[in-house]
């Protein structure tokens, strides 16, 4: 179903969920949970948004059925650790590539996906100051390196 324009700020989280559908269903579940909670705050009034959110909720409930016995889904603290570890693993991969001077689409995507997953961490509560910094740095780096590669500059 097409994403209504009012909900565009959750489109990348939903795409990350699709990318992880088979690779890591727990990541997919929490990306959709974040998108659901954020979407309801953005706009659950207009008919097209409500329709979209009802479909997303249906998807979440059926994922919950499938994954219910997984501790990362049934226990928030385990889920929190799962998402945080995964986000930091992506961040560290991208950071290592960056420090080694290897600039490419994969490292850009890893920085960006790490920043999206740090957004998702907020479903478990306030982000730590460290994660807020990580998220800011990862999003900035992804944008900076992407623009450099686009203009042919060598990122510093």
């Amino acid at each position: 179903m097409a994403l209504p324009a009012q909900l565009r700020s959750i489109q990348h989280h939903l795409r990350t969920a699709q990318e992880h559908e088979n690779r890591d269903p727990v990541v997919a579940y929490y990306c959709r949970l974040y998108a659901m909670q954020t979407g309801m705050k953005l706009d659950s009034k207009t008919p097209e948004c409500r329709k979209f959110l009802v479909k997303l909720m249906d998807q979440l409930e059926s994922m919950k059925q499938e994954l219910g016995d997984n501790d990362s889904i049934s226990q928030e603290v385990v889920g929190n650790a799962h998402i945080e570890n995964y986000a930091l693993k992506m961040f560290l991969y991208a950071d290592n590539e960056d420090r080694a001077g290897r600039f490419h689409k994969n490292m850009i995507k890893s920085f960006y996906t790490a920043s999206l997953l740090l957004d998702v961490l907020s479903v478990f509560g306030e982000l730590s100051e460290e994660n807020i910094q990580h998220r800011k740095y990862a999003r900035w780096k992804a944008t900076y390196v992407h623009n450099c590669l686009k203009t042919g500059e060598t990122p510093v």
Partner: peptide, 27 residues
Amino acid sequence: TGSVGTSVASAEQDELSSRLAKLRDQM
């Protein structure tokens, strides 16, 4: 139709909120 539409909308919103709360409670 305006008021009916609004009450349908808020009923659906309430239903979404309670489904979300239920999903999270089961976690």
